[in-house]
Computed example of a mutant assay.
Amino acid sequence: MTSQIEGITVLDPLQWRGWTGVVADVWHAACSPGARGEYVSRDPRLFVVLEREGSPGALKLSAGGGALPPCHAPQYFNLIPAGVPLWSEVSSPLRLRHLDIHFEAATLAARLGDEAEDGPLETLRLGLVDEGVLSLARLIAAECATSGVHSGLYGDGLTLALLIRLLRLGGMCSGQDHR
């Protein structure tokens, strides 16, 4: 992934793990007013807000040429296809802990077979709230933080369950749960 950031300070060392076709990393950052970033990944990725301190409207995201209203849910996620730039802009002080999961599309397509035919990782979806996805994301983040006290099969199972949950979301509308 390539990124350009301004006004964003990483607070804790990067925590990450890799499993079959997946790399997951947890970031904890402080953003000053006016902070901004641009992020592009060669792989599809899931960006999950795990914790946020600051005004719910402080973080504004845009991708694929369109801006979205801020998501006010305390935890939410964004699914960003490969090669689609994501831009962030912060209007007031904000601390954010988030999980990025990068999916190697070819490996996962081979593992999922017919399940992957609908191209769920090729559709931009921002500001989604689904407790199943969020619960799995929290477990994956915890596994990153513990440096893998469980076997690699545990992480493989979690990431596969997450991917299947994402496939099941189908036509879930983005931006609908902005409380």
Rank of each mutant, 00 (worst) to 15 (best):
E143N: 10
G170P: 00
G37A: 15
T2Q: 12
G57L: 02
V90I: 15
L163D: 02
P13V: 05
A30S: 15
G113V: 00
C144Y: 01
F77W: 13
P93A: 07
P85S: 13
A105P: 02
D100R: 11
P70V: 09
S174W: 09
L79Q: 11
S88F: 03
P74I: 03
G57R: 10
S151F: 00
W16P: 00
I80H: 05
Q15K: 14
L96W: 14
P74Y: 06
P70F: 05
G152Q: 08
L79V: 14
P74F: 08
E104S: 09
L163T: 15
P81S: 09
S92A: 15
A116Q: 04
E117F: 02
R165F: 03
I140A: 04
D177A: 13
M1A: 11
F77N: 03
P56R: 08
G132S: 10
L163Q: 03
C144I: 07
R52M: 13
G155W: 00
S92E: 15
E131D: 13
A24D: 05
S174T: 09
V49N: 06
L96C: 09
T9L: 08
R168Q: 14
M1D: 07
G132D: 08
A109W: 01
A142Q: 12
D43N: 14
F103G: 01
G157I: 00
P74H: 10
H98L: 15
R125Q: 10
G127T: 02
S91N: 06
E51K: 10
L158N: 01
N78F: 09
E38N: 05
I8P: 00
D12T: 13
S55K: 08
A67D: 05
E51N: 11
R52S: 14
S88V: 10
G113D: 07
T107Q: 10
L158T: 01
G64K: 06
L158A: 04
G57Q: 12
D118N: 04
Q4L: 14
W27I: 05
P93T: 05
A30N: 06
E51D: 15
S3Y: 13
Y76A: 08
F77S: 05
T20F: 05
A161W: 04
R52L: 07
A73S: 15
R97T: 15
A30L: 05
G152S: 05
L50T: 11
A58M: 12
